[in-house]
Amino acid sequence: MSVQMIQPKPAPKLRLKGISKEFIAPRTGQRTLAVADFNLDVQPGEFICIVGPSGCGKSTVLNMIAGLEKSTSGSIEMDGKAISAPGAERGVMFQDYALFPWKSVRDNVGFGLRHGTAGAGMAKAEREDRINHFVQLVGLKGAESKYPHQLSGGMRQRVALARLLANGPDVLLMDEPLGALDAQTRLVLQVELLRIWGETGNKDDRKTVIFITHGIDEAVFLADRVVVMSSHPGRVSAVLDVDIPRPRTEEVRLDPRFAELSEEIWSLIRDEAYRAIA
């Protein structure tokens, strides 16, 4: 097991220090510790995947970074500043996409730019150009005027991704974005996600990504580092470097290192996974 100490680097993009989250049931007053002593430094442009058994508090960690939930203790900093509320610099892609059903594909993609802080100082033409660019990027050209209920799961997922990117956040927080898709579509979109993230381009242009998944192979395929969580309470059990070079293509899945890393992660969560269904 290679539990790695995080190298002290000058300016992490995100710093999670001793985060814990306790939920108190409204009527019974029963306390549940969902996340305990969670520590993580994320470098700019890094792709982090968080894996763990279901119910380990992965989504809770993500929601706290997004500012949608408050941590019970500890601190979360972005560029050295404490996070207390949601903001456009931290974009979220939700598990079930959370698209606005009354908005067309185009209006969903442009929602943040039109009504949020990100597009506030932008000229109308620039805003429309941006929307066009991201609609094109995720392959939704021609479907702009459709509504979410007219789209397949894979296409909805693309709309959610375009909406996330169009708003221009610094940090992308993705909560099992490919979870609801069938296996083939997942594989295709994993490759596409890396392309859109800018794997082939300049390293400095990449966004910082925190990606939650329960797919071990998905985590190894996508991530620079994989954070493995254990549950009850949710804590970091290991952080693994994925030393498979980029750009990664389909062949990576045949790489012996890919199998090795997947096996290592599986060995970390296997016991809990078995216990959960026993």
Partner: peptide, 24 residues
């Protein structure tokens, strides 16, 4: 989730009311 999505896109409370709550 729709309100959460609007918040994370930096949409103000007033705009949330007009563009999320009313159509919803």
């Amino acid at each position: 989730k729709l309100l959460a999505a609007a918040k994370t896109m930096g949409v103000t409370r007033k705009a949330q009311l007009v563009h999320v709550v009313v159509p919803a």
